[in-house]
């Protein structure tokens, strides 16, 4: 077995200390070691975005990140995002737009939507589509997800 290492980082705002194997992915650490199952495994290869988390304010695929590399960083998962005002807005918008079907992809979309809005607070439809390119959804056909993010980016336009 690979070496075990103690790491310390901030997880959803709280300091976390844990031991991980050197070859473990951040996704495995979150789900199997820390029990945060909102972050999903969809492919393990960076292709689906179900495992999206934020590290130092930017989204990454947690399945591609070495858990040890979390040391000293600021990590946010869907559990953390959901407890923020933006997380609540996104949640409401996805729900109201019918953007959730099986829901397996949704936490990843939530995380990535946050990134899109950070880059483009008033994101255009095309910017949203490009921003969500790394997230696969097999159920919805994406339109309602795009609508939902658009509604958060342009709150007045959609409140008519």
């Amino acid at each position: 077995m690979s070496a075990m290492l103690e790491i310390e980082f901030r997880l959803n705002g709280v300091v976390q200390r844990t031991a991980v194997a050197a070859d473990m992915s951040a996704l495995e650490m979150l789900r199997d070691v820390l029990g945060l199952t909102g972050t999903k495994y969809g492919c393990g290869e960076g292709e689906c975005g179900a495992c999206t988390i934020t590290v130092d304010g930017r989204t990454v695929n947690s399945c591609l990140m070495f858990a040890v590399d979390c040391n000293g960083r600021e990590v946010q998962t869907i559990e953390g995002l959901s407890a923020t005002p933006l997380g609540e807005r996104l949640n409401h918008s996805l729900v109201a737009h019918g953007a959730v079907q099986c829901g397996f992809c949704t936490p990843g979309f939530m995380m990535q939507a946050q990134q899109v809005l950070a880059e483009h607070p008033h994101a255009s439809r095309e910017e949203i589509q490009r921003g969500l390119e790394g997230n696969l959804c097999r159920c919805t056909g994406y339109r309602k997800i795009i609508d939902a993010v658009e509604a958060v980016a342009h709150p007045t336009a959609s409140a008519e």
Partner: peptide, 21 residues
């Protein structure tokens, strides 16, 4: 009418426990 799915809020917040979870 346009009725949102009852299970959607839990799913979007990562609370829903799928088999894998």
């Amino acid at each position: 009418r346009r009725i949102p799915k009852l299970d959607a809020p839990d799913k979007a917040s990562g609370r829903t426990r799928y088999l894998h979870d």
